Amino acid sequence: MVVLPVRFERSPRLHAMLSEAPHAVGTRVVVQGKRGPEVATVRGEAGDPDPQARYGSVLRAATPEDLARWDELHRQGEDLKWLLRARARERGLPVKIVALEFTLDESLVTVSYSAEDRIELGGLIGDLRGHTRARVNFAAVGPREQAQIIGTLGACGRGNCSSTHLQEFAPVSIRMARDQQLPLNPEKLSGPCGRLLCCLQFEHGMYLELLRDLPRKNARVCHTESGACGKVTKLHPLAGTVDVQTDQGLLAGVPAQALTRVTDPAGGKGRRSEADAAET
């Protein structure tokens, strides 16, 4: 037995599945997961199973009949998605139907939806009963899950991270934007989902390392060559420089090594500590 990483169509997350035999990367297989039999794609090399872990299972390589059936269920799900959206509008329900997904044996249909408040979905279940005998499961999803399922373009022009490669949604805070010296403009810092950009977390650790070699913002410093002293007004972590406002004017792009920290009245030296970097 081997373990294969597989990926489902609507998510980039890899799921470990137990298989009796290895399958080549890119092979579409039928797997038995939590919801039932589904079609997935092998996305990595086979590995050894962990005796302590629990796995789903790879049932077989998908046959042409499996794939044809899977495509038909996908089309049926798309049609029913639009039907439910229309029925929700007719009933005045404040809900967004994001996706409908069948299992390969059509025993279960999962309806992913988004709503601000708790709503009664019994009427929509009744609407589905007239089109499928599958058991209906409604699953509430958040903004990031919506972007993952639907897929969209990010500010970089590429597919959004949540639908292309993210394996989990790590916490993202406005503090990360401050550490990266980004303007705190909600429109610039928000992704298509309306939440803070997931990519803010990717380089955050690097920025914290760079900031430790820079003086704090508003710290009092003196330029070793000119002797001019002033207050740090802006940090440039990637360049390793800062801007200093002196009585004579602005010194822009001064290397941190060319500055001397001035002891402040409270006893500090204007040097940036790890705690300071986390509070910029």
Rank of each mutant, 00 (worst) to 15 (best):
230 G>I: 06
152 T>N: 04
153 L>W: 03
143 P>T: 07
235 L>I: 08
178 R>K: 15
233 T>L: 14
197 L>Y: 14
131 H>S: 13
95 V>E: 01
179 D>F: 00
173 S>A: 09
4 L>F: 11
257 Q>L: 11
181 Q>T: 15
51 P>S: 09
37 P>Y: 03
223 H>V: 09
279 E>D: 05
149 I>V: 14
218 N>T: 15
241 T>L: 04
1 M>F: 00
172 V>M: 01
88 A>V: 11
271 R>M: 06
7 R>M: 11
15 H>E: 11
172 V>E: 02
107 S>Y: 06
221 V>I: 13
35 R>W: 04
238 L>T: 10
86 A>V: 15
240 G>K: 03
274 E>M: 00
69 R>L: 11
68 A>H: 09
156 C>T: 10
83 L>Y: 12
61 A>K: 02
181 Q>C: 15
247 D>W: 07
20 E>W: 05
130 G>W: 07
75 R>I: 02
58 V>I: 14
230 G>T: 09
179 D>R: 03
102 F>H: 10
14 L>I: 03
228 A>P: 00
274 E>T: 11
275 A>F: 09
81 K>N: 12
280 T>C: 11
257 Q>Y: 14
73 L>E: 00
166 L>I: 08
181 Q>Y: 05
129 R>H: 15
229 C>A: 14
16 A>K: 05
116 E>D: 13
1 M>E: 01
182 L>D: 03
80 L>V: 12
75 R>S: 10
120 E>C: 03
230 G>M: 05
110 T>C: 07
53 A>R: 14
41 T>N: 02
198 C>E: 05
81 K>G: 12
216 R>V: 10
217 K>C: 05
56 G>L: 08
